[in-house]
Design a binder for these strands. Structure first.
Lengths: 190, 190
DNA sequence: ACCTGAACACCGTTCAAGT
DNA sequence: ACCTGAACACCGTTCAAGT
């Protein structure tokens, strides 16, 4: 997965500058931030950006890798602290909050749980679906979650809940409330 | 609300040409369709498009007005046929299906139920919120819907459900299923 | 091997000139 | 009063030239 040969020193430096600039720009302007502006912030030519990150999504994914990783690890931590049903709900809450707070993160999850033709199994996508898989299966085994929902569906619905609460002004307060409606529905028998 | 003086004949003709071209273009390319292309299709200068529709949203709204109207009327028709709780669920199903099938319609509803600073009460927005208002209140009076949800919240959540099911390949089949999870949650006591 | 930045194509928006 | 289309600003993407 990692490149065979290490990067040349200047390439590595540009790569990291681009990543830092991207994190800043995405935070300021959302996932639509100007790529040209990101290259300028990083002090590199626009061609260099394309060399390292051939698509916007590749850059977005690289910029948010650590956040995704942290969310996945939270799943495991929570699973050790709470019984399965509560663990799932708690993790979904943290996930949904993250999706509304960190601009661009929601669209990243979106493309990770899409199954259109492309269906590029992104690194961050498989990390999150893996985490969801464990929590969902455990809750189903315990009987606190209906058995006919797939982990990826739970992620899609959480994405939807985050979208819905973004439409309200105080997105932070509504997300818990909207998510509880979803989890109430998920608990019910099919 | 309607203009004081009637439009000049050529203006009226251009207006309608633009509208037809917009319906076509939005259907083909989604809400992001090129405005310049729409003007070209209609055979008018780009400035004329801006004269009639100062923003993309204005054009989008005008293009979908009849669809919105039809959805609102369906709400009343269903309300006469079914008991309140079932009527709400049935209408939300038709709404969600419309949101996934008609490209651009979802974003239109989205801006109608957003309460950010702008909060322009669009014509189509108030039409849909009015319809939702009646169905929601009736279901709550009957006791088949929890009393602490607002009509606009139900619309936001339906928007979210449509978003979630768009992430699945066969959006049409998933939307009923995802919506039923939501309505299960909405039935539960608070 | 990698970087730079000019060049190209495309889009939204404005506005002077025309009828 | 309304229309046209050139002009401008901006953005993504490619690629020849440079180190």
């Amino acid at each position: 997965m990692t490149q065979a040969r290490p990067m040349r020193a200047d390439a590595r430096r540009n790569y990291e500058r681009l990543l830092r600039a991207a994190v800043e720009a995405f935070a300021e302007h959302g996932e639509g931030a100007s790529l040209d502006d990101i290259a300028k912030r990083a002090g590199v030519g626009s061609g260099t950006l394309y060399r390292h990150f051939p698509t916007r999504r590749a850059l977005l994914e690289a910029a948010y890798l650590d956040r995704i990783e942290a969310l996945a690890q939270r799943a495991d931590a929570i699973a050790r602290e709470l019984p399965p049903g509560e663990a799932l709900v708690e993790w979904l809450n943290e996930l949904a909050l993250g999706l509304t707070r960190v601009r661009g993160l929601k669209s990243l999850l979106g493309s990770a749980v899409t199954d259109d033709g492309s269906a590029v199994a992104t690194a961050c996508g498989s990390r999150l679906t893996g985490a969801a898989e464990r929590l969902v299966r455990a809750a189903q085994a315990e009987g606190s979650l209906r058995g006919d929902v797939e982990p990826i569906e739970v992620l899609r619905l959480t994405h939807g809940v985050a979208t819905a609460s973004e439409l309200a002004s105080g997105a932070g307060t509504d997300v818990r409330r909207y998510l509880s409606l979803l989890t109430d529905g998920l608990r019910a028998a099919p």
